[in-house]
Design a binder for these strands. Structure first.
Lengths: 395, 395
DNA sequence: CATATTAGTAAACTGTATGGATTAAATAGC
DNA sequence: GCTATTTAATCCATACAGTTTACTAATATG
């Protein structure tokens, strides 16, 4: 009961940043007394802070600005990817307080070893946070692959070569005593949530965030939540069929989008060498090369992106008809490539996304690009703290 | 606060039908005293009822069976369709207490006139309910078309020829004084919810309910809720493209699923006359003829269904990859045609729905067929009563 | 028939939000 | 420069809702 009301008030504080108690009372529907009491509890937990005086109306006593305590609790976001590990710490004000990315070729490395490295990275992050007066409240790991979140394992991460790895459990051992224990989620889902919280995804209502990496995933955000599906496998945009009977795909099908618009396919079509284990270790190395070609208006590269964009757009047209997003956000490698790929995507989308609605959703490039997943991971922890502030109360 | 707890208890009563107070206390986490108090309130509102004694364990005092009062509140479901109007009344135990279907060719009739007819049908239903001791708590109308639920209007219902009709408002005038005022929702969405509540959709977790009518729609149910999309247009399965550059569609695109697996397309491929305004007035007339052909193993009809099934399956494969449903439910005309269309659907689905998951969701036929939408409409009202029992409290 | 066991109720208790009165701090007008 | 007015925040008594504890009711076991 009180727990819920604490969350309501804290949520409102987060949304309106510097607010007076009087405004909070109006917005939440509680009485001013109740707001004061709840804020006292939150302040005791180090979650909010009184600030300067604020003059609301024309006259009358000025209110005290209440805002989120940027130096109280913090959230740790982690990411395991094919060619790097990353960590970041965000405070409750959603500012980045620490960020670290270590390139690493994780393919084939034993999961325990990878997670040990990640644990070290996490420990450094926690220490760095502590140095800034921040207490890490919880952690979340982004992983590329299919997850079983209930049992806390990574079911299959084909690009890492993992099967049934209990990431959360292993990480909990490395990071004991967090009020919110470490958990994990899919990279594409977290990247989409990052767009919602840190990009301008919120402006569009629901949206589809397309994560272009070696594979192509999508995070579908509706009503502020990720659409997970019955088994948690929703958003497999990369395996929609664009070319029936086309090139065989790793999934066993033929003509999957990934074969037309995946990173390898684009590079190949542009006449660049496909990614190998060694080049993969340099993040966006091959993409940089591609962009260089595009900036020189290399015809082959331009055609490659046009083709990929048309395939992506046609696939997204299906997604638009099924899910009715307010926008399409191009993330991952599609974010830096947006200037060249977007026109084709929009054209193909306009052709197929018709249906009965009048307009097709706008296609925008994510500003977060490669950092989306880590930020999203930290964001989930922040949301959890805001949704359950009671977890951080001094008992 | 109390409102919420009343809902929790009532929900539990509905789920476990005859339960003792002790069991309710266990399931809800409340104390026995609290459960007793809340039940007293619910009983006062005529929502629940004490029944016979029930012997739970081996010995000890037997408990009093509490169950939903079947003769208290009731829900009115209504449906406007191209060739009929329908009404049904369900009690809180989800039993059908009244059902009426009137064939009517509603195409081109002025909306006011259609709604006046519907209002009469609704008034009859309310009277019939009253005759059985039931108080209608609220009403919901199923409409085929794109809706603006916030403003209570039907934006476009192409098959009816309607634009911007304030259905809810008009119906509220016809049915005043309901504790839960009349509202409307999309036919496909309500049919899907009916499958969840009255069919066996609940067994599958999330699912996609395909409503085959003149057009093809889909209701996507996840976590017990319909996926509506940003503008409420989600589920437009009929306008996914199966055959790039194929036959032009009413939506402006080419090669939409509707052109391959819609009712008209199937009938045409089977060598039957397409639906006209006059034949349409007889519900499932043309489908009956088609089934007769199929039962005689007419090769053209069989081929027609095979082709439609392949197209449908290929489209559903996209939907499966995007949304990860636990099952595909064939509703509307696909329900009676399931024996002939399902094999092709499953085959196409198995080809394209691969992705990284191991198995494709099962394809099942809905048992509700044509009644799904009305039932779903009434079901929404029931859910609302259960979720907000306070609305029916004697003030 | 006593005892163990389960179901339900009654009375006192506790935590939480509300309501009205009170104090505090600023502006506007005379 | 004073008072009146407006707005902000707090204090205290009250009401509400669910818990705790104790008790009664109804059945089976030995």
């Amino acid at each position: 009961m009180r727990e819920r009301n604490l969350a309501v008030v804290l949520e409102q504080v987060v949304r309106c940043q510097p607010v007076t108690r009087a405004r909070l009372a109006e917005h939440t529907g509680f009485t001013k007394t109740t707001v004061s009491n709840l804020l006292a509890v939150l302040e005791g937990a180090g979650l909010v802070q009184d600030g300067a005086l604020v003059q609301g109306g024309e006259r009358g006593r000025p209110g005290i600005a209440v805002s989120v305590n940027g130096d109280g609790a913090a959230a740790l976001g982690l990411e395991i990817n094919v060619d790097y590990l990353a960590a970041c710490v965000l405070d409750l004000g959603r500012r980045t307080r620490y960020h670290q990315l270590v390139t690493f070729d994780n393919r084939g490395r034993p999961p325990e070893s990878v997670i040990a490295s990640l644990g070290r990275l996490a420990a450094e992050a926690v220490a760095a946070a502590a140095g800034q007066g921040l207490n890490v409240a919880g952690a979340m790991v982004a992983v590329p692959g299919l997850l079983d979140r209930e049992n806390g394992l990574v079911r299959r991460a084909p690009n890492l070569g993992w099967t049934d790895v209990p990431v959360s459990t292993l990480l909990r051992d490395a990071l004991p005593d967090l009020p919110i224990p470490a958990a994990h989620d899919n990279e594409a889902n977290l990247a989409a949530l990052a767009e919602l919280w840190f990009g301008d995804g919120a402006r569009h209502g629901g949206f589809i965030h397309v994560s272009g990496e070696i594979g192509i995933g999508a995070g579908i955000v509706m009503d502020g939540q990720v659409l997970r599906g019955t088994h948690g496998f929703a958003g497999e945009l990369g395996h929609l069929i664009v070319e029936p009977g086309g090139a065989p795909c790793t999934c066993g099908g033929r003509g999957c989008l990934e074969q037309s618009a995946g990173q390898d396919a684009i590079l190949r079509a542009a006449g660049l060498p496909a990614v190998t284990a060694t080049t993969a270790a340099k993040p966006d190395g091959p993409i940089k090369a591609l962009i260089a070609l595009l900036e020189r208006s290399d015809p082959r590269a331009l055609a490659a992106l046009d083709g990929a964009g048309r395939a992506l757009g046609a696939t997204l047209a299906s997604a638009v008809n099924l899910v009715d997003p307010g926008a399409i956000v191009l993330g991952g490698i599609f974010s830096p490539l947006a200037p060249w790929i977007r026109p084709a995507v929009e054209a193909a989308l306009a052709e197929g996304g018709g249906s009965l609605r009048t307009e097709v959703p706008p296609v925008v490039a994510s500003e977060l690009a490669g950092n989306a997943a880590v930020l999203g991971a930290a964001g989930v922890v922040i949301e959890r703290v805001i949704g359950h502030p009671a977890l951080l109360l001094p008992s």
